[in-house]
Design a protein around this nucleic acid. Structure first.
Lengths: 123, 123
DNA sequence: TATATTCAGTCTCTAATATAGACTGAGTCT
DNA sequence: AGACTCAGTCTATATTAGAGACTGAATATA
């Protein structure tokens, strides 16, 4: 098979900078949750399994900073804060959803490959 | 706007497990590099900016374990080891490329959002 | 009236993870 | 003889993540 042409370095570099943010452990999960609609802090916390408050705060702040989500504070007691994807965030959620769908569809193949590898290695 | 239906929990969970692997700091970069063709260890090291030898080894092993890449050792001196995407890995590279393309295309919008946020916050 | 609960965080302490950089081994090159 | 190469590994340090206590003021409960 003919090797494909390498993408231009400029493009790679630009992609890398942005992927550095969206390619971390929690961002994908959070964006996918917000893709289902506006959510408050504790709702996201409950729906993203295993995330700590600290990381949820940190990740949401990063998403807000980069323009993917809005944060709306209601000065009630107890406080209420709602997070929602911007249009830009909804655009991002498309390639992210494609990745998530692929991941879900190929889950079993990955597990099979992993078992096969572990059997090969353990002797 | 009507909220969209949440994906089924099963699907989410499956996707999460797989994304846990491909959604780390280096995997995306390495797969994108390998998408341009077979590469040896030091070539990847040079093309993925800032990666440490240890993380390159760790990440490549994970990708091999999950069936995304093959590792071929040539017992020469000095040693030569070639990494190549499997067909499965090439499948993965499609949604990953889509994400990378989106990231590259929207790089400037992210940076603008970030500057705007930082200006808003710093007072 | 006293107490518990709620939410969206923050803070601190500890645990896990990543990085930097030295080291390896045997064959070529100078 | 000495330097250089590659694909790692090893160790020590630095960065990052996680667990869990704490906050403050209104409401709900006993």
């Amino acid at each position: 098979m003919e090797p494909m042409a390498a993408p231009s370095p400029g493009k790679c570099h630009k992609a890398n900078e942005v992927i550095a943010l969206i390619g971390d452990k929690w961002t994908v999960h959070i964006v996918m949750q917000l893709a289902t609609g506006k959510k408050r802090f504790s709702e996201i916390e409950r729906s993203v399994d295993g995330i700590s408050r600290k990381m949820l705060t940190t990740t949401l702040r990063g998403l807000e900073r980069d323009g993917y989500v809005t944060r709306e504070v209601f000065p009630t007691i107890p406080p209420r804060v709602e997070y929602e994807l911007t249009n830009f965030g909804r655009e991002l959620s498309c390639p992210l959803r494609a990745l998530g769908d692929w991941a879900a569809a190929n889950h079993d193949r990955v597990l099979a490959a992993r078992r096969a590898y572990d059997n090969r290695v353990e002797d």
